[in-house]
Structure formats: C-alpha cells, structure tokens
Simulated assay, not measured.
Amino acid sequence: MKSIIVLFLILCSLYSAYSQSTESNFLFEKAYRLQSENDSLKTKVIKPLRDSIGSLNSKIKELQEQKIHDLERDTAALNRRIRRMERDIVNLNKNRVIGARDSLQELVRVLNRRIEELNQTIQTRNTQIADERRIGEQRANEAEERGQNEVLEMIVNSYRNTNFDDLIKISTKLSVQRDIQFAGNNADAKVKQILSDLKVYFNAEELFSKKINTKQIDSTMEVLKQIKQQSTLIEELKVNIKSYQKPYRALKEMINAIIDLDKIPSYGVKENERQKFNTIISKLTDYMYGHYNYGNYPYLSEIVLELLNRKKLNCDKDITDLNKKLE
C-alpha cells in the first residue's frame, strides 16, 4: 500500500514538472513572437511616422518663416500707404483751410459792404429825425409860446378885472407866488401892484398861525398901510392883527385855570370826573363866548381843540405843554 502511495506522489511530481516545463516553453514562444512583432512595428510604422513628423516640422517651419516674411512685407506696404494717406490728409486740410479762409474773407467783405450801406441809411435817417425833431420842437415852442401868452393874458385880465376882495377869496399864498413868477415883467404896473398887495395880505395872515410876536405885528401893520387897494378884507385883517393879543392872553389864563383844577385829581370816581369835566367845559364855553373871534386865529383854534380832545378822554389829562405853546 505504501508503495502505491509513493508511486502516486512521484507521478504527481513528474506531472507537475512536466506541466511547468510545457508552460515555460509556451511563454517563451509568445515572448519571442511579441519581440518580433515589436521590431516589425518599429521598422514598418514608427520609423516612417517619425520621418513624416520630421518632414512636417520642416514644412511648418518653412511656412512660418514664409508667413512672417509676407506679414513683414505687407506691414511695410501698409505703413507706406498710411504715410501717404496722412500726407494727403494734411494737404487736404490745408486746401480746406484755405478754401474756408477765402470763403470767410468773402463773407466779411459782403458784410462790411452791408454795414456801410446800413450806416449810410442810419445816418440819413438820423438826419431826417433831427430835422423832424427840430421842426417839431420849433412848432411846440411856438404853440407853447402862444399858449403861455394866452394863459398870461387870461391871468392878467383876471387880476385886472376882478375885485380885490374877490381875489383874496379865490387866491392863496402859493397861487399868488406862482402867478408872480409866471407873469413876471409881462404884466402891466396895475397887475404887478395887485399881485404885490395880495402877497402882503397872505404874509400878514400867517401871523395867526404861530406864536404872537409883537415886533412882527408892528412891522406887518406898517406894510399893510402901504396897500393901495380898497378892500374890506384888508381892514378886517388889520383889526384882527390889533386884536390878536386879547384872545391870546385870555386863552393862556384859561389854560392856567384848568391846570390849577388838575391839581385835585378825580381818582377815577365817576361823579368827580363828571363834575370836573363840566367845570372844564364851562371855562371853555366862557372863553369862546367872550372871545368869539378866536376862530380867526388858527393857532389858538388848534390849541382849544387839542385841550377839548384830551379832557374828553380823561379829565385829568396833563395840558401843561399847551400852556407852554402860549409863552
């Protein structure tokens, strides 16, 4: 039995060795065939391919060099063309500037001629306007002179043919001054005297619009005596001037009496206020009745009205400043 087993093992070993030897031979043969095929591939495919690539690279380099040369040539030609175009542009610009200059010069000449024509027209028109203005001014002056003469004649006739008292009533100091300036030396002696007398009258009447002045009253009376016109109003004016002092002093006394009355205030008591106001009104009434002509004196009338207005609002209102107006 053991012999059979040993024999079997020997046979297995021999079979294994034989199998390995056979496989090695197969691999060797396969490797040999691959090497042969590789050499054939190198000879038949790779070498021609390398040769083709080398040739292609040479052609590419040649083409590149040729292309670069062509580009350089084209670039130079293009640059030369650009320079020619630039010169043409410069020349064209020069010609265009010259043409524009010539056109502008011609336009300037045309405009200058037009300006000369317009200036000539303006000068002619100015001459016509000056002539028309001179004629118009001459006519206006003539019309104004005729109008002034007519107005002057009317003024002179109104003074010459109107009663002196009526002239006083319809005239004022300003109107007399205006007519004196307007009439000037063109009025006759009679009209000049009338205007002068009217001026004296209105100057004298102004005495009643301010504080009394004895010296001025005396000088005014002397001037009034020189008036040659027959006039009732002149005589009344003289009387009022002579009488001015009487209502003047009486008003001052009445105001002093009310000032003394103000020393006792009413203290806001209605009955006291009523009695005090009645007393003031009584004094004012006595003054007005006693000196009825006080209305001929504007200065006195204004003071009386101011006193009444103050006391009507407040019977204790101070009036000492009114007294000072009469000092």
Rank of each mutant, 00 (worst) to 15 (best):
I194M: 07
N95W: 07
S40F: 03
K190V: 07
K211N: 13
L56M: 06
D165L: 10
F208L: 09
G54K: 07
L174Q: 15
D51Y: 03
L261Y: 02
K192N: 07
E106Y: 02
L27W: 13
S3D: 13
I281C: 07
L111F: 04
E144D: 09
V151G: 00
I5H: 01
V97M: 14
A130T: 04
D165T: 08
I180E: 12
V176P: 04
K199H: 05
Y244P: 15
K169A: 11
L14H: 00
L174R: 12
R84G: 10
S40C: 03
T285D: 14
N157M: 05
Q229P: 01
L251F: 04
D260A: 05
T43Y: 02
N157A: 11
K263P: 04
L198Y: 02
P265H: 09
A100W: 09
V90H: 06
S175N: 09
I155V: 11
R160P: 06
K59A: 14
L167S: 10
K44I: 04
P265S: 13
N323W: 08
R146T: 08
A183Q: 10
K192M: 12
V304A: 12
Q35F: 05
I281A: 11
K242G: 10
L195S: 07
K263E: 15
H69A: 13
G290E: 08
N79D: 06
N309T: 06
D262I: 15
D321L: 12
I122T: 07
V223A: 13
E205D: 00
S55Y: 09
E37K: 09
R50N: 11
Y248P: 15
A257S: 14
Q275I: 01
N163K: 04
N213G: 05
I212N: 07
G295K: 02
I259E: 08
L118N: 11
I194N: 02
T75G: 02
M154D: 09
A100E: 12
D131Y: 09
L313F: 05
C12T: 13
R139E: 14
T75N: 12
D262A: 13
E145G: 11
L313K: 03
V269F: 01
Q138T: 04
K169Q: 10
K225H: 08
L233K: 08
I217H: 06
I319V: 03
M254V: 14
E271C: 02
N272V: 14
L167V: 04
Y287D: 00
L14D: 03
E145V: 00
